[in-house]
Write a protein that binds this DNA or RNA. Structure first.
Lengths: 254, 254
DNA sequence: GATATTATTTATCACTCGATAAAGATCAAG
DNA sequence: CTTGATCTTTATCGAGTGATAAATAATATC
């Protein structure tokens, strides 16, 4: 970068040394631009990064920010709102509940829509910055995923398996869905948090994860629900039934 | 907390108002205490948290830190060294390679040793703080896991399946191990980063994840290796071969 | 073209940060 | 007790932070 960092105002900029006053924008556009760029900026540098650096990246001066947001926290909250709730699609839940399709198709289709929505640098990194700060916005998002995605899945899985029970989701069922979700989600972590890969293809992983869930649910859910209704403990969650001590005779999987 | 935050010097502390000078310690002990507490402190508050707050938490004044560490960065590096390399066990690799046990037993045993080692607030949170900062210490840890854990696993899996090939690990094999690892690891994230659960029992999840890997590896590895040797593309990574769908799902929703 | 409006900048404040130097307090050796 | 060494504190610096007020410059309106 040899050019002296000029904002793209579209005006002719003779070899001036001065930073060139930023073009005047209408307030709504400027505000939107600020939130947009702030999301990009904070997702890269964390929320502790300075407002001066953010402003300079936009080609404006720092106090301008405070004409549009009463505080830095206020700006950050706008970023949250845009990145989090702005991305949520209510169809996710309703389509997961559409029993005209087999469970496998619904799950695969869901993750094919969900992954592209959140597997980007901005979403992923802001999510973890917020999580580490212990912000409630993050806790609420996780709760939302559990309530609107994972629990419906567990619910639908009972139906798919022909289990008719009004009993609340057992711990086994909950952990099983989280396991599938975690396997898929971890791909996004590798790409955008670790930054270890940059050409990740999520499709393989999500198919594997969905398969894991379907197979294991078929194995475990019926028993877990039955036991729960009898007041007995969750068999799959108790410590290993002398798991894998000597030979592999006991129980080969599958 | 009604007590006025006194350092446990073991001395009688009359109702003094003054902060009570910190007890004199021998340098090695003090230094160790600083690193120890710094790990705790930074893992909770992030590396941008101030040295004054850290010092006050120890009952000492801020400049004391600089008698033991030439800079904040220096202190942080000591924290890294303790938390990261200090926890690593070389046995992990050697035990994974011990072919006197079936693969399933080795994997379960590994994760039963690995999870307790890293699934604690300190390790998990420092790991993600460092990852988001893009610190090389983090990239190097991920590379270490890949090289000393995941690649050996993929390698051993070939042996378990009776595949004798010197060909490098295919993408399918690599992603499969990462998928198992991610499913297990995500449990730690839920507990210590999201802080959504506090009584997580990792055993159920790791058994499921290991099973997933074993089953899918049996399915896919042989073909992936054979294709790689023929120069053909990885079949499991190309987009779904009309994935087990009954209806032609005109298209998955956007 | 003159005037009012307002988007943007300059200047600045109070505060916190990491870091340094000098003074003070504690301990061991004589 | 005296002296010297060193662990700890007080005092302070310069740089950077979020935020505010006043000055400037571009636009809109008459």
């Amino acid at each position: 970068m040899s050019t002296p960092k000029m904002p793209e105002t579209g005006l002719e900029t003779p070899p001036d040394r001065k930073p060139a006053r930023a073009a005047r924008m209408n307030p709504e556009a400027r505000r939107e631009q600020l939130v947009e760029q702030a999301a990009e900026f904070f997702s890269e540098n964390g929320f502790d990064a300075g407002t001066r650096q953010l402003a300079s990246q936009l080609g404006v001066t720092q106090p301008l920010i405070y004409r549009y947001f009463k505080s830095k926290e206020d700006l950050i909250n706008e970023v949250y709102r845009m990145v989090y709730v702005g991305q949520w699609q209510d169809e996710w839940t309703s389509r997961l509940r559409d029993r005209s399709l087999p469970m496998q198709d619904r799950l695969i289709a869901f993750y094919r829509s969900y992954c592209p929505a959140i597997f980007n640098r901005r979403w992923m990194r802001i999510f973890f910055f917020a999580a580490l700060k212990g912000l409630d916005i993050n806790a609420r998002y996780v709760a939302r995923v559990a309530k609107r995605i994972l629990h419906p899945i567990a619910d639908e899985m009972r139906a798919e398996l022909g289990i008719d029970s009004a009993a609340p989701i057992t711990r086994t069922e909950e952990e099983l869905v989280w396991l599938m979700h975690g396997a898929v989600f971890y791909q996004g972590i590798r790409e955008h948090v670790y930054r270890t890969v940059d050409d990740m293809d999520y499709d393989f992983g999500l198919r594997m994860a969905v398969d894991l869930y379907l197979v294991k649910a078929r194995d475990l859910v019926a028993r877990a629900v039955a036991n729960a209704e009898d007041g007995k403990p969750d068999p799959s969650l108790v410590h290993p039934p002398c798991q894998a001590t000597r030979k592999p005779p006991s129980r080969p999987w599958q």
